[in-house]
Computed example of a mutant assay.
Amino acid sequence: MAVSNLVVDESAPDAATVTSGSSFYLAMRILPAAQRDAMFQIYAFCRAVDDIADSDAPRAERSAALERWRVDIDACYDGQPRPALTALTREIRTFDLRREDFHAMIDGMAMDAAADICAPDEATLDLYCDRVASAAGRLSVRVFGMSEDAGHELSHHLGRALQLTNILRDIDEDAAINRCYLPYELLAREGIAATNPIAIADDPSLPRVCATLAERALAHFAKADAIMDAAPRKAVRAPRIMSGVYRVLLERTLERGFDLPRTSVAKPRLRLLWIVARYALF
């Protein structure tokens, strides 16, 4: 994806290759072939719109590229996809994927493309999490074969748990691109001025804000676990792995702490492989 003259790629990407660098790749690999292929297509879409939102192209170009994706998704549902989206259209039909969930993902990326997010209020942060994370979950649980109500609830809680983990892990990386997703209300409670992301990231009171957000993430993980405990085991093997991987990342982030200087959080590969083996084999 070019960063200075965004054009939606008309060629069909290799969805498996696009997905291979994802934290979710191992969870997808353990699925039966039909489900695995569908998840690769969903992830390739999510990656494409995320790349647009995170590019350094002019905002108008990013917004236009995202709107092109909205038109492309509608074309899939109208039975007239561009060639690169023929496979995605097939998965939409096979698993009855919902148009509004694809649109919600685009809406979330449009929030990043429109302006640098800094200290959103609680409602805006929750909406953002729903769009960029839980919407992908709502697409995924239909592939996994979960019941409607349980799948929707799992998407709500696990999506928010994963996105809050990302926010806590990536404070410095986000600040470097002039973003801060920590909510205004929590910052104000600790006397942190929501002026700019770098100042927020450097504030000595930041760990108290992060501790509160981490508690929320853990609560969402716990609710997701309860939903998966009550679901058929086969339907939740992949989300179990996704949850396990991100819970490890949250644990590592909390072990690192939020005082300066902060180091990057690495994925503990051997532990992640154990998580995959646990849910894939037993």
Score class of each variant (00 low, 15 high):
Leu218Asn: 12
Arg189Ile: 01
Thr94Gly: 02
Ala119His: 00
Arg271Cys: 00
Ala64Asp: 15
Ile241Thr: 04
Ala193Thr: 12
Ile92Phe: 03
Asp202Arg: 15
Cys76Pro: 06
Asp74Tyr: 04
Arg29Thr: 12
Gly159Tyr: 05
Glu255Thr: 11
Trp274Phe: 09
Asp101Gly: 05
Asp107Ile: 05
Gly159His: 10
Met228Gln: 08
Ala175Phe: 09
Pro197Trp: 05
Arg269Phe: 07
Thr212Asn: 10
Arg247Met: 08
Ala44Lys: 08
Val143Ser: 12
Leu272Val: 15
Ile241Leu: 13
Asp51Tyr: 10
Arg278Thr: 13
Phe40Gln: 04
Ser264Cys: 00
Asp96Gln: 15
Ala226Pro: 05
Ala119Ser: 07
Thr19Lys: 04
Asp74Arg: 14
Ile177Val: 15
Val276Ile: 11
Leu97Asn: 09
Ser20Arg: 15
Phe95Trp: 15
Pro197Thr: 06
Ala104Asp: 14
Thr195Tyr: 01
Ala194Asp: 06
Met105Ile: 15
Ala15Met: 02
Ala199Arg: 08
Glu91Ser: 10
Val276Glu: 02
Val245Lys: 03
Asp116Ile: 00
Arg169Trp: 04
Tyr77Pro: 01
Met105His: 01
Thr165Arg: 02
Ser4Val: 06
Arg252Ala: 14
Arg82Ala: 13
Arg82Tyr: 02
Asn178Leu: 09
Val236Ala: 07
Gln41Lys: 05
Arg47Gln: 13
Ala104Tyr: 01
Ile192Asp: 07
Pro204Ser: 07
Ala53Ile: 05
Ser243Asp: 12
Arg90Glu: 13
Asp14Phe: 08
Ser264Thr: 13
Arg98Val: 03
Ile73Lys: 03
Gly257Phe: 04
Tyr25Val: 09
Gly137Met: 03
Leu187Phe: 07
Glu215Gly: 12
Glu255Asp: 14
Leu186Val: 07
Arg189Phe: 04
Ala214Leu: 08
Val141Gly: 00
Ala84Thr: 03
Arg59Ala: 14
Arg62Lys: 15
Ser11Tyr: 12
Tyr181Pro: 00
Gln41Met: 02
Ala113Trp: 09
Phe282Thr: 10
Ala150Asp: 13
Arg68Thr: 13
Val8Tyr: 01
Ala110Asp: 12
Met28Thr: 11
Asp107Lys: 12
Pro268Glu: 00
Leu186Gln: 14
Trp274Ala: 15
Asn5Met: 09
Leu97Gly: 04
Asp172Asn: 10
Cys210Thr: 00
Asp54Phe: 07
Met105Gln: 10
Ala266Phe: 04
Pro261His: 09
Ser4Ala: 05
Gly21Arg: 14
Trp69Asp: 10
Trp274Met: 11
Ala280Met: 07
Trp274Ile: 07
Gly145Phe: 11
Lys234Asp: 12
Asn178Cys: 04
Arg252Trp: 06
Asp101Asn: 13
Met146Pro: 08
Asp202Trp: 03
Arg68Leu: 08
Glu185Thr: 03
Leu162Gln: 08
Arg36Ile: 03
Glu185Tyr: 00
Thr253Asn: 12
Val245Glu: 01
Ile227Ala: 07
Val276Phe: 09
Glu185Cys: 02
Ala176Tyr: 00
Ser140Ile: 02
Val132Gly: 01
Phe40His: 13
Ala266Met: 11
Asn178Arg: 14
Asp174Gln: 05
Ala75Met: 04
Phe40Trp: 08
Thr165Lys: 00
